[in-house]
C-alpha cells in the first residue's frame, strides 16, 4: 500500500503542478510509493485525515494543532522565510481609513482558509466586530473575494497576504489594505503521520537538503518555496500554543 500525501488546499493554483513534481521527487529519493491526493476544501481534507487516509501533509498551521495533538503527527520541516500573514482589504473608494472606522453590519468576504480567517477576525476586534455583528460570505478563492469587493457585494475582505500580493496590479489598485498582520511565527509545516514515522529521519534529511540539489531546486521553485528548514517538536508545540490563544 502506498503512503498518502496531501497539501493544504490553500496553495496557489500556479503551484499545483509543483506539488506533483515534489511527490515524484520524494518517491524517487525515498524509494517508496506515495500517492498525492489534493482536496478542493479544508472540510473534505479533514474528513480524509480523520478517516486515517493521510500519512504525510503540508498542513495549514490551524490544522497542525489537530494533527499533532490529537492524531500523533510530527513536524518534519517548514518553508524557510514563508510566514502566513493576513490582510484586511476594502474597495479603494471605501470611507474607512482604519479598522476602527468599520461598523456593525459590515459585509465581509472571506474564504474557508482557517488561519487567514482567524487572523482577519482578530484584526477586526478593535472595531468591536465579531461573528455576531457582521454579515459574512465565504468564497472559494481570493480572486472571488476581490471580485466581491469590486462589485460592491462586500465592504471588506480577508486575504492571505501572499494571495493579495499575487493579484494583478489592475485589480489591486482598485482596493486598499486597511491593516496587515505582522505575526511572523505562524506558517505551514510538513507533518508526518504515525504510519510513516519510520521514514521520518530520512525524509527530514532529504527535504532540508533539497535546495542544495539541482533537481531539488527546480522542484522547490515550482512550489514557490525557497527551501525547507528543519522544524523541531518544541517549535511545533510553540506554534500550536500560539494558535490556541487566537482561537478563543
Amino acid at each position: 500500500m502506498p503512503f498518502n500525501f496531501t497539501v493544504s488546499p490553500d496553495f496557489a493554483p500556479d503551484h499545483m503542478s509543483g506539488w506533483f513534481y515534489f511527490n515524484t521527487w520524494l518517491q524517487r529519493n525515498l524509494g517508496t510509493d506515495i500517492h498525492l491526493e489534493l482536496f478542493d476544501s479544508f472540510d473534505a481534507q479533514r474528513d480524509a485525515i480523520k478517516a486515517g487516509q493521510v500519512d504525510l501533509i503540508y498542513a495549514n498551521p490551524y490544522d497542525a494543532s489537530m494533527l499533532v495533538r490529537e492524531l500523533g503527527f510530527k513536524a518534519v520541516a517548514r518553508p524557510a522565510g514563508k510566514k502566513d500573514e493576513a490582510v484586511i482589504v476594502v474597495p479603494a473608494n471605501s470611507q474607512a481609513e482604519a479598522v476602527e472606522d468599520l461598523e456593525a453590519g459590515v459585509r465581509l468576504a472571506t474564504t474557508d482558509d482557517p488561519d487567514v480567517h482567524t487572523i482577519g477576525m482578530i484584526m477586526l476586534e478593535p472595531a468591536d466586530l465579531d461573528a455576531s455583528n457582521i454579515s459574512q460570505k465565504d468564497y472559494d478563492t481570493y480572486i472571488l473575494v476581490a471580485k466581491a469587493l469590486l462589485r460592491g457585494e462586500a465592504d471588506v475582505g480577508f486575504f492571505l497576504k501572499q494571495g493579495f500580493d499575487e493579484l494583478s496590479d489592475l485589480i489591486k489598485k482598485q482596493m486598499r489594505v486597511l491593516v496587515s498582520s505582522q505575526i511572523s511565527v505562524v506558517h505551514h509545516a510538513l507533518l508526518v503521520g504515525p504510519q510513516m514515522q519510520d521514514c521520518m529521519a530520512e525524509l527530514k534529511a532529504l527535504v532540508t537538503q533539497m535546495h542544495k540539489d539541482e533537481k531539488g531546486i527546480g522542484v522547490l521553485e515550482s512550489m514557490g518555496i525557497k527551501e525547507f528548514e528543519s522544524m523541531s517538536t518544541e517549535q511545533t508545540e510553540f506554534m500550536i500554543d500560539l494558535i490556541d490563544t487566537l482561537t478563543i
Binding site: 476602527e100 482578530i122 484584526m123 476586534e125 478593535p126 472595531a127 468591536d128 510553540f238 500554543d241 500560539l242 490563544t245 487566537l246
Partner: peptide, 12 residues
Amino acid sequence: YTSVRRKPSRSK
C-alpha cells in the same frame, strides 16, 4: 505559560 496580546477596542 504562553501569553499573546492583541489590540483591544476602545469600548473594552
